[in-house]
Amino acid sequence: MTAVDVVLLLLGALAAGSGVLVVTTRRLVHAALWLVVTFGALAGMYLVMTAELVAWVQVLIYVGAVVVLLLFGIMLTRAPTGRSDDLDSGNRPAAVVGGVVTCVLLVTLAGYGFSSAYADLDTGRLGTARAIGTVLFRSWVLPFELLSVLLLAALVSAIVLSRRRES
């Protein structure tokens, strides 16, 4: 095991651990803050795997925007400083089962789907902005555009939904 492996494992443990804390903490805002740690650890993992650009975009979008949006929502609606014991819905067993099943499914799928995809991290700079841009706009341009259309549709529908009552 190299030092990089150790760091990767540690970051993984941090991400998983803080992920568990997100769903178990009794304080609503703490959940959002633990999410910051999770996203940070994930970004760290991307970094270790030399995917620099993805790491920074992860921080920019998820920590900088999504978590702030979450916090905004929480503070706007409830803003409890203390513990909120009513958070527990009593569905723990079901949640655990669901989580484990999803995990197994994802791991197997990813394992099978990408079992032949190897990237040598030591030689090429795969994670640079140039490399990712090239791949994204050469090989994967169709999925990329499809995704953007999907997002656009979501955006438009959000606007439509929020305006419906006016007329």
Partner: peptide, 16 residues
């Protein structure tokens, strides 16, 4: 390498 994104990403953390 992606210094611009690094800077913007880290800056946005400060707001948290």
């Amino acid at each position: 390498d992606a210094g611009l994104f690094y800077a913007l990403a880290v800056m946005s953390v400060g707001v948290v």
